[in-house]
């Protein structure tokens, strides 16, 4: 299995809206984070939810986000506190420097 996103890579969670069952939390859509590790592959939950096989399986990554960047002005957290979430490959894209983000990861 080839790894699309290596640990340490900066990635962005897609900002899309989809109807139906999705395991990507809304508060992380469009957020930039850092890949921690590949957890393995799992049947796509969006397909399993409607009684399909979910195959081919999708890669699932642990991605780390700074709490203050995700919840600016709202967070009750220390400066370096983080959120670790499991995000499927099809919800991630490489974050480019010129994409308008100024996240100091």
């Amino acid at each position: 299995m080839t790894d699309l996103f290596a640990p340490g890579m900066t990635v962005r969670v897609k900002a899309g809206e989809t109807p139906g069952h999705v395991r990507t939390p809304y508060y992380l859509r469009g957020q930039t984070g850092q890949v921690q590790r590949l957890l393995g592959t799992f049947p796509n939950p969006e397909d399993c939810a409607v009684h399909k096989s979910g195959l081919p399986a999708k890669r699932l990554y642990q991605v780390l986000f700074p709490v203050h960047a995700v919840f600016p002005g709202q967070a009750v957290a220390a400066a370096d506190d983080t959120i670790l979430a499991d995000i499927y490959e099809h919800w991630l894209e490489p974050a480019t420097v010129d994409a308008g983000e100024t996240t100091a990861l």
Binding site: L39, P45, D80, D81, T82, I83, D86, Y88
Partner: peptide, 17 residues
């Protein structure tokens, strides 16, 4: 209450883990 210099890492158990 955690010291400020301890990183609090919130794990959102969103998927298959």
């Amino acid at each position: 209450v955690l010291p400020e210099d301890v990183e609090l890492r919130v794990v959102d158990s969103t998927a298959d883990c």
